[in-house]
Design a protein around this nucleic acid. Sequence first.
DNA 1: TCTATTTAGTTCGAATTTGAGATAATTATA
DNA 2: TATAATTATCTCAAATTCGAACTAAATAGA
Lengths: 145, 145
Amino acid sequence: MKRDETSLKAFIALKRTNDAIDIAIRKDIRKYGLSVTEFAVLEVLYTKGPLTIQTIRDRILIASSSTTYVIERLIEKGYVIKEQDTKDRRTFYVSITDAGRTVMEEIFPMHAAMIQSFFDCLEDDELEILKEALKKVSARVSNII
Amino acid sequence: MKRDETSLKAFIALKRTNDAIDIAIRKDIRKYGLSVTEFAVLEVLYTKGPLTIQTIRDRILIASSSTTYVIERLIEKGYVIKEQDTKDRRTFYVSITDAGRTVMEEIFPMHAAMIQSFFDCLEDDELEILKEALKKVSARVSNII
DNA sequence: TCTATTTAGTTCGAATTTGAGATAATTATA
DNA sequence: TATAATTATCTCAAATTCGAACTAAATAGA
């Protein structure tokens, strides 16, 4: 198969894999009344600690207006709080609350187990190459855009 | 790094790569007045020929209500037509029109070149493993769900 | 210092997407 | 054959997402 053709096939496989996993996660997380985006925000705050709104947006790659929206939903649910930075009053830090942490502690193990089961069809070295190759490609995409 | 941890990292990299590419494609295709979903439908009809609505839905993994919606948009734009199957009157075949083909012939080379440039940071064997690994994972996900 | 530019986040309207529940046609079963 | 179950698609309301334009605050440059 020619190089160009392989790239296109890889892209199609990437899209399909992502979409299929997304559907699985959506179903799973819906039980807890969360959308995939809400979960992504909670997850990054849970693992990385308090972040500015902008950092959250860069992490999960959604429009900034969507970031405002999803954080508002999470505040309503009591899972995060938003605090203005005293030094730079344009920026806000978002942190997970105890209630948010409790939900994540309930969801996360099942979520992680599901993800792991998706990848358990790969050998160790395949998985490693997959991970590294994806990192290279996403860095490349960010560079080009 | 432990196996489980690598799976989670691979998943995060997958999501991030997909989202970044999606944003790039959206920008690119917007110039032609198409959404990413509309483009995906056109692309599959362009490369695979006429398909039923259900097959299109399975290919691009969106809700069936969304399939109805996006095909309606494409009909309005004159890029596809919908024809009822004479044998099974529940099913409809969707085909790309000449106008749709013309648009695809205009967009597709640039689109393909962009995709290829995203993957040109990988060696041939890395790309091959990436593609095959993604196929395995998406098959695995479909099996589990 | 004054003004221009940049940065962080929000508002708003329009477009898209979803899930739940129809409808209509086909197929399986009693 | 009559009825039940399945299949293909659609309708609808609600939720999400986006892009464009905005406000407010900080920083850079004259």
